[in-house]
Simulated assay, not measured.
Amino acid sequence: MLLAELPGGRHLVGLPGNPLAAVAGMVTLALPLLRALAGRSAGEPSPAVAVDPLPGHPVDTRLLPVRRTARGVLPLPYDGPAMLRGLARADALAVVPPGGAAAGDEIELLEAP
Protein backbone atom coordinates (compact mmCIF):
# COMPACT_ATOMS: atom_id res chain seq x y z
CA MET A 1 0.00 0.00 0.00
CA LEU A 2 1.11 3.51 -0.68
CA LEU A 3 0.01 6.93 0.54
CA ALA A 4 2.00 9.90 -0.74
CA GLU A 5 1.69 13.63 -1.13
CA LEU A 6 3.06 14.78 -4.48
CA PRO A 7 4.47 18.19 -5.36
CA GLY A 8 1.66 20.67 -5.79
CA GLY A 9 -0.43 19.09 -3.04
CA ARG A 10 -1.82 16.18 -5.02
CA HIS A 11 -2.08 12.79 -3.30
CA LEU A 12 -1.41 9.28 -4.49
CA VAL A 13 -2.95 6.14 -3.01
CA GLY A 14 -1.66 2.78 -4.21
CA LEU A 15 -3.67 -0.31 -3.35
CA PRO A 16 -2.58 -3.95 -3.46
CA GLY A 17 -3.96 -6.42 -5.95
CA ASN A 18 -5.89 -8.82 -3.75
CA PRO A 19 -9.46 -7.74 -2.94
CA LEU A 20 -9.41 -7.90 0.87
CA ALA A 21 -6.14 -5.98 1.09
CA ALA A 22 -7.46 -3.39 -1.39
CA VAL A 23 -10.60 -2.84 0.71
CA ALA A 24 -8.47 -2.64 3.87
CA GLY A 25 -6.34 0.00 2.14
CA MET A 26 -9.44 1.96 1.13
CA VAL A 27 -10.82 1.86 4.69
CA THR A 28 -7.54 2.71 6.44
CA LEU A 29 -5.80 5.02 3.92
CA ALA A 30 -7.97 6.36 1.10
CA LEU A 31 -11.23 7.11 2.94
CA PRO A 32 -9.54 8.92 5.86
CA LEU A 33 -7.54 10.97 3.34
CA LEU A 34 -10.67 11.90 1.38
CA ARG A 35 -12.52 12.82 4.58
CA ALA A 36 -9.62 15.01 5.73
CA LEU A 37 -9.36 16.74 2.34
CA ALA A 38 -13.11 17.43 2.46
CA GLY A 39 -12.84 18.83 6.00
CA ARG A 40 -14.93 16.02 7.47
CA SER A 41 -14.16 14.17 10.67
CA ALA A 42 -12.68 10.71 10.46
CA GLY A 43 -15.01 7.78 10.97
CA GLU A 44 -14.42 6.35 14.41
CA PRO A 45 -14.25 2.59 14.99
CA SER A 46 -17.31 1.24 16.78
CA PRO A 47 -17.13 -1.37 19.55
CA ALA A 48 -18.69 -4.80 19.18
CA VAL A 49 -18.59 -8.19 20.87
CA ALA A 50 -17.25 -11.27 19.10
CA VAL A 51 -19.90 -14.01 19.20
CA ASP A 52 -17.43 -16.64 18.01
CA PRO A 53 -13.63 -16.59 18.13
CA LEU A 54 -12.06 -14.38 15.46
CA PRO A 55 -8.90 -15.86 13.99
CA GLY A 56 -5.87 -13.62 14.00
CA HIS A 57 -2.35 -13.48 12.71
CA PRO A 58 0.38 -14.56 15.17
CA VAL A 59 2.11 -11.15 15.29
CA ASP A 60 0.11 -8.65 13.18
CA THR A 61 -3.27 -6.97 13.53
CA ARG A 62 -5.75 -8.39 11.02
CA LEU A 63 -8.83 -6.85 9.41
CA LEU A 64 -11.44 -9.58 9.16
CA PRO A 65 -14.79 -9.35 7.33
CA VAL A 66 -17.65 -9.82 9.81
CA ARG A 67 -21.45 -9.72 9.89
CA ARG A 68 -23.42 -7.97 12.63
CA THR A 69 -26.07 -9.91 14.54
CA ALA A 70 -28.23 -9.05 17.57
CA ARG A 71 -25.67 -10.82 19.82
CA GLY A 72 -22.53 -9.30 18.27
CA VAL A 73 -20.38 -9.98 15.23
CA LEU A 74 -19.65 -13.24 13.48
CA PRO A 75 -16.72 -14.05 11.20
CA LEU A 76 -17.67 -14.89 7.65
CA PRO A 77 -16.51 -17.93 5.74
CA TYR A 78 -14.44 -17.31 2.65
CA ASP A 79 -12.27 -14.67 4.34
CA GLY A 80 -9.09 -15.33 2.37
CA PRO A 81 -7.29 -12.34 0.86
CA ALA A 82 -8.33 -13.16 -2.71
CA MET A 83 -11.93 -14.15 -1.92
CA LEU A 84 -14.78 -11.77 -2.70
CA ARG A 85 -17.66 -13.87 -1.38
CA GLY A 86 -17.14 -13.19 2.33
CA LEU A 87 -16.19 -9.59 1.72
CA ALA A 88 -19.37 -9.01 -0.30
CA ARG A 89 -21.49 -10.19 2.66
CA ALA A 90 -19.56 -8.20 5.28
CA ASP A 91 -21.12 -5.37 7.28
CA ALA A 92 -17.78 -4.30 8.69
CA LEU A 93 -14.12 -5.18 9.13
CA ALA A 94 -13.18 -6.33 12.62
CA VAL A 95 -9.84 -5.09 13.93
CA VAL A 96 -8.47 -8.37 15.29
CA PRO A 97 -5.40 -8.10 17.53
CA PRO A 98 -2.38 -10.37 17.11
CA GLY A 99 -3.29 -13.90 18.14
CA GLY A 100 -7.01 -13.41 17.52
CA ALA A 101 -10.01 -12.61 19.71
CA ALA A 102 -11.97 -15.02 21.87
CA ALA A 103 -15.76 -15.29 21.93
CA GLY A 104 -17.04 -12.55 24.22
CA ASP A 105 -14.09 -10.21 23.61
CA GLU A 106 -14.84 -6.61 22.70
CA ILE A 107 -13.31 -5.60 19.40
CA GLU A 108 -13.39 -2.53 17.15
CA LEU A 109 -15.22 -2.41 13.83
CA LEU A 110 -14.44 -0.36 10.75
CA GLU A 111 -17.36 0.19 8.40
CA ALA A 112 -17.08 -1.77 5.16
CA PRO A 113 -17.66 0.38 2.08
Results as ranks from 00 to 15, higher is better:
residue 14 G to I: 12
residue 15 L to T: 10
residue 15 L to C: 03
residue 15 L to Q: 02
residue 16 P to W: 00
residue 16 P to G: 08
residue 17 G to M: 05
residue 18 N to S: 12
residue 19 P to G: 09
residue 19 P to N: 07
residue 20 L to K: 05
residue 20 L to R: 08
residue 21 A to Y: 10
residue 21 A to C: 06
residue 22 A to L: 06
residue 22 A to G: 12
residue 23 V to T: 10
residue 23 V to L: 14
residue 24 A to L: 02
residue 25 G to P: 07
residue 25 G to A: 01
residue 26 M to T: 14
residue 26 M to C: 15
residue 27 V to H: 05
residue 28 T to R: 13
residue 29 L to R: 13
residue 30 A to N: 05
residue 30 A to T: 09
residue 31 L to V: 14
residue 31 L to Y: 13
residue 32 P to K: 03
residue 32 P to S: 06
residue 32 P to H: 08
residue 33 L to T: 09
residue 33 L to D: 02
residue 33 L to E: 03
residue 34 L to R: 13
residue 34 L to T: 06
residue 34 L to M: 14
residue 35 R to W: 08
residue 35 R to Q: 08
residue 35 R to P: 03
residue 36 A to S: 13
residue 36 A to Y: 09
residue 37 L to T: 01
residue 37 L to M: 11
residue 38 A to D: 13
residue 39 G to A: 07
residue 39 G to W: 11
residue 39 G to E: 08
residue 39 G to Y: 10
residue 40 R to W: 11
residue 41 S to F: 14
residue 41 S to A: 15
residue 42 A to F: 02
residue 42 A to P: 12
residue 43 G to A: 15
residue 44 E to P: 10
residue 45 P to T: 01
residue 47 P to I: 14
residue 47 P to M: 10
residue 48 A to I: 08
residue 48 A to L: 11
residue 48 A to C: 13
residue 49 V to H: 11
residue 49 V to N: 10
residue 50 A to I: 06
residue 51 V to I: 08
residue 51 V to F: 07
residue 52 D to Q: 15
residue 52 D to E: 15
residue 53 P to C: 06
residue 53 P to K: 02
residue 53 P to M: 03
residue 54 L to A: 03
residue 54 L to Y: 02
residue 56 G to S: 04
residue 57 H to V: 00
residue 58 P to G: 05
residue 59 V to K: 15
residue 59 V to A: 15
residue 59 V to I: 12
residue 59 V to Y: 15
residue 60 D to A: 15
residue 61 T to I: 09
residue 61 T to Q: 13
residue 63 L to A: 02
residue 64 L to S: 06
residue 64 L to N: 09
residue 65 P to N: 05
residue 65 P to T: 10
residue 66 V to W: 09
residue 67 R to I: 04
residue 67 R to W: 06
residue 67 R to F: 04
residue 68 R to T: 04
residue 69 T to L: 08
residue 70 A to M: 07
residue 71 R to Y: 11
residue 72 G to H: 02
residue 72 G to K: 03
residue 73 V to H: 01
residue 74 L to R: 11
residue 74 L to D: 04
residue 76 L to R: 01
residue 76 L to I: 04
residue 76 L to W: 00
residue 77 P to S: 04
residue 77 P to A: 03
residue 78 Y to E: 15
residue 79 D to P: 08
residue 79 D to F: 10
residue 80 G to S: 11
residue 80 G to Y: 00
residue 82 A to L: 12
residue 83 M to Q: 15
residue 84 L to C: 10
residue 84 L to Q: 11
residue 84 L to I: 09
residue 85 R to D: 14
residue 85 R to I: 11
residue 87 L to W: 03
residue 87 L to N: 00
residue 87 L to C: 05
residue 87 L to V: 00
residue 87 L to A: 01
residue 87 L to T: 00
residue 88 A to Q: 07
residue 88 A to C: 07
residue 89 R to L: 14
residue 89 R to G: 08
residue 89 R to N: 12
residue 89 R to S: 13
residue 89 R to V: 04
residue 89 R to T: 07
residue 90 A to Q: 00
residue 90 A to S: 05
residue 90 A to W: 00
residue 91 D to H: 12
residue 91 D to N: 07
residue 92 A to P: 08
residue 93 L to V: 08
residue 94 A to Q: 00
residue 94 A to R: 00
residue 95 V to T: 03
residue 95 V to N: 05
residue 95 V to S: 06
